[in-house]
Amino acid sequence: MDRRYTILAILLIVAAFGLVILPGGKNSKELTPKELLLSINEQARFVSTDQVTERIIERDPSLQLIDVRPANEFAVYALPGAINIPLDSIASPGSRELLSSGSRDKVFYSNGDIESDLAWQICARNKYQRVFVMKGGLNYWYETIVKGVEPSTTASSDALELYKFRVAARQFFLGSKTEDQNLDQKNAVSKTKTIKLEKKPQAGTGGGC
């Protein structure tokens, strides 16, 4: 073999051997504990129930709601378009493809904040992008959107506008039923609107020679 090629081959092998003996890279796939703590203090991960409601009504294709409650609770009621990934399955290989995809905003919700925030922490630690938590969870969603307390007449115009939006949203989700009938109505809404998590083949970029 030509001497130049011999030298190049030796250089390649030495460079590759360097990768074997180097300690773990600075750019690990996971956040360090310090980075994770800093990101937990950030409030940017929270989206309000009103923001989520607006995007559901607009049928925003970039929104992916993820219900982290157990499957039996999901079967009873879930937000329209939501998929169910229980908290104990968030780190499973089957969920990784969906959660690591950067093409949609993934919004976690549970009954309150705690479980959805834990799901967010697992994703944040794995550096998954566009992951959010619905602030207050389903309980707060019910309080604000379904029940919704009318503000006083002296409230700010913003508060009155928000209330109008909530009333309109309530009609979208529950029709024109009274509040007492709402609970019964909820099951019917959930059963027709929820979808199952299916692994679809991705249309990726082409390659080759």
Binding site: L12, A15, A16, L19, L22, G25, K26, N27, K29, E97, K127, P201, Q202, G204, T205, G207, C209
Partner: peptide, 30 residues
């Protein structure tokens, strides 16, 4: 083609080690 593949691989891994490239952001074809 093998030279291109191994050169690219070594470059990416060293760049990732030095923090110049976020290796996890690369798209992996299924």
């Amino acid at each position: 083609f093998f030279t291109a593949a191994i050169t690219c691989m070594l470059g990416l891994l060293y760049f990732s080690y030095l923090g110049w490239i976020d290796y996890s952001m690369l798209y992996i074809q299924p």
